[in-house]
Design a protein around this nucleic acid. Structure first.
Lengths: 343, 343
DNA sequence: ATGAAAGCGCTAACAC
DNA sequence: GTGTTAGCGCTTTCAT
C-alpha cells in the first residue's frame, strides 16, 4: 500500500500538502491540488486509518455492545446504528457479549478508547462499574435503551418509556374484552423488563381487572413457548397472553398452534418492540412498536456530542448526566389479537 | 488513558521493557516484570490498539462483508465468524453493503488493510474487480460461501456444495411422492442460487419427473410469499414448494396459511440453509442444512493463513488459489413436508 | 537483562 | 500556498 509520503514524492510536494489536499484543510493551489489528486489515484493511495487515528488521537469507529446478535432485534438495531454512524464517518464494531459480563469487559478494555472513540450499549448485561470505568478513562458511553425515563441510570442514555408500552398492550387487551390474561416477562424478576410489566399491571389495575398470572422466561421464542404452555396448563381459561417482548410473543403463538388453539379466536397474543418478524409471522403479531430507528439516531448523536465535548475527560457534574427521551411507543394492531371467544 | 511510557516511568524502566513484559517477548527479570505488572494495573493501563497496529503493521481486526445484516442468516454467520476470529485475537467489523456495490467498495477502500488485515466476504453483491483490487493492495480476501466447488471463483474461498443441497431437497420431495412442485429461486436468473436450483432440476430429471414451474424472487419472506401465490395461481394443483433458501420457504408457508392451505397436508415446503427460524417456525421447516459454523471456521482459518503467508504481497501463482470445501449439506426433516394429499 | 533510538503513516502547528 | 518539524503510542533492532 502506498503511503502519504509516496504520494507526496510522486506529486513533487511534501506530505503536509498532500494531507491538506486530502482533508480540505489549509489552502492549497488549484494546480498543486490537481497534481496531488492525480498522484493519489495513479498510486491507488488510501489513507491508513490506524495511522490517522493515532495522529488525530481519535478513532473513526464506534463500538456497539449487544448481548447476542442472534436475537433478531439487535441486527435491526445495529443496522440503524450503522446508518446513523456512517453519517458522521464512523464505522461500527459490533461486540457480542453473549450475555457474559466478562466478555463485555474484555471488549471494553480492548476496544474502547483505542479502536473506537465511543461506546453504545444495548441491554448487554454489562457491569455498570465497567461502563463507568471506561467512561472515566475518557471514552464516552451511551445506554441506548433505558427503560425507565424517571429513574436516570447515572450514565448518558436514550430512554424509552417502556412502562407505557406495557400499559398500551394491557389496555388494548382489556379493551377487546379480555379479563384472564397471562403475562410473560422476558427477563428475571427485577430485570430489564420490569417496567414493561409494571405498565401492564397498571393497566389492569386502572381497569379494575383481576391480577394476571405471570411467568418469567428467557427472552426467546422458546422461552415464550414454554411459558405459554405452563401458563395455559395452570389456567386453561386464559384468553390472552401479554409478553414483554416480541420473541416470547411469537413463542406464545407457536405454543397455541401446537395446542390446537386458534390465534386470535382462542388466544390473543401481544408483544412489545415490533421487530420485523412481528410483521412477518402468521398471524401477524399485534405489538407495541418502539421507535428503533429514532432511538439509534438519538443514541449516535448523543454519543457524538459527548465525544466532541470530551465529556468525562474533565470532571463533569455527576449531577447532570444527559438523557434523551424517544417518542412514545405505539400500539400496532395486527392479526394476533381479537375479542375473546369463550371456551 | 495512561500510555506505555507512563507505565515505564512508574515502574522505573524504559518503554521497551514494558513492551517486552506485555508481549512476553525478550527476556525480562522476574523482579522487573512484577514491577511492571504492578504499574500496569496501578495505572489501569490498556494498550492502544491503533498505535500497536501502526507499529506492527497489522490490525487486530477482520472485516466481514454482508449484504444485509437484516437477513437473519448473516447474524448467525457473523456470530460464528466472531467466535472463530476471537480465537486468533481478532475483532470483527461487520460491513453492511446493503446490496450496493458502491457501499461495498467504500468499505473495502477504507477498512481493508488499514483497520482490518483481512476481508471475509459473504454473498454481498460485491464487484469481483474490487475484491481483486484490495487483494492486490495486499489485504487477503476470502469468499465464505462459494456455491460451485467445481468452478473456482479465482479468489480464495470456502465452497459449499449447494447443488447437492438442491438435489437433496428435490429428492426428498420426490420420495414423498410429489410430482407437481413449484420452485422458488431466491435470486436473479443466473444469480447466486443457480447451483441450488440446478441440483433440484437434476433430482427431478433423475427421477423422470416433469419439469417444475419456477419463479425468481427476492431472497426474503415476502419474496417467497409473493412467489408462492403466483405459483399457486398459475397451477393450483401444486403439492409442494421448493425454495432455494429458508426465508422464501418461510414466506411460502405464510402464503399457504393465508390461502387456507394446510402445511404439509395440502402443501409441502422445503428450504435450504437451516437458519434458526427454520427450527422455530410453525410448522417447523424441513430444510437442507448448511454447516454454517464449520464454514465460518474454515473461512477464518483460511484467511489467517493467507495473512500469515502475506498471500498476494508477492506475486502468487494465479493458478493455485486456495479453496476449502465444507462438509456436505444435510437434509433435516421437520414438519413442513409430508406425502401429498390430492386436492 | 535492560536501555537507546528509529520508525510505523499520518496530522498539526508554525515558519517561510 | 507550501515546507519544516515534531509527535501520536507502540514495537523492534541493536547496544550495553
Amino acid at each position: 500500500m502506498p503511503t502519504l509520503s509516496e504520494v507526496a514524492r510522486h506529486a513533487g510536494v511534501t506530505p503536509a500538502t498532500v494531507s491538506n489536499v486530502l482533508r480540505n484543510r489549509g489552502r492549497v493551489g488549484a494546480q498543486t491540488r490537481q497534481r496531488v489528486l492525480d498522484a493519489v489515484d495513479a498510486l491507488g493511495y488510501r489513507p491508513h486509518l490506524a495511522a490517522r487515528a493515532l495522529a488525530e488521537g481519535r478513532a473513526p469507529t464506534l463500538a456497539l455492545m449487544v448481548s447476542s446478535i442472534a436475537n433478531p432485534f439487535y441486527p435491526e438495531f445495529a443496522l440503524a446504528v450503522e446508518r446513523a454512524a456512517r453519517t458522521s464517518g464512523h464505522f461500527v464494531i459490533i461486540c457480542n457479549t453473549n450475555e457474559d459480563p466478562q466478555t463485555g469487559r474484555a471488549y471494553l478494555d480492548q476496544i474502547a478508547g483505542t479502536l473506537s472513540e465511543g461506546v453504545l450499549v444495548t441491554n448487554a448485561n454489562l457491569d455498570f462499574a465497567d461502563l463507568h470505568t471506561t467512561e472515566a478513562r475518557g471514552t464516552p458511553v451511551v445506554l441506548c435503551m433505558w427503560e425507565r425515563p424517571n429513574e436516570p441510570p447515572g450514565l448518558p442514555c436514550v430512554a424509552v418509556d417502556f412502562r407505557l408500552a406495557g400499559e398500551l398492550a394491557g389496555a388494548h387487551l382489556l379493551a377487546l374484552g379480555h379479563r384472564r390474561i397471562g403475562a410473560i416477562v422476558g427477563s428475571k424478576a427485577s430485570g430489564i423488563h420490569a417496567a414493561r410489566y409494571q405498565g401492564f399491571v397498571d393497566a389492569l389495575h386502572a381497569a379494575g381487572a383481576p391480577k394476571s398470572p405471570v411467568k418469567h422466561a428467557l427472552d426467546t421464542i422458546q422461552g415464550g413457548y414454554d411459558a405459554t404452555r405452563a401458563l395455559l396448563e395452570a389456567d386453561p381459561k386464559l384468553t390472552a397472553i401479554f409478553a414483554t417482548n416480541d420473541l416470547p410473543a411469537l413463542g406464545a403463538m407457536h405454543a397455541a398452534a401446537d395446542l390446537g388453539l386458534h390465534v386470535p379466536d382462542d388466544l390473543s397474543v401481544i408483544g412489545i418492540t415490533d421487530i420485523q418478524l412481528a410483521r412477518e409471522s402468521r398471524p401477524a403479531l399485534t405489538t407495541v412498536a418502539v421507535p428503533t430507528v429514532e432511538v439509534a439516531e438519538l443514541a449516535v448523536s448523543l454519543l457524538r456530542e459527548l465525544i466532541e465535548s470530551s465529556y468525562g475527560q474533565a470532571g463533569r457534574g455527576a449531577a447532570n448526566v444527559p438523557m434523551r427521551i424517544s417518542s412514545p411507543p405505539e400500539l400496532v394492531v395486527r392479526a394476533s389479537t381479537g375479542a375473546p371467544r369463550p371456551r
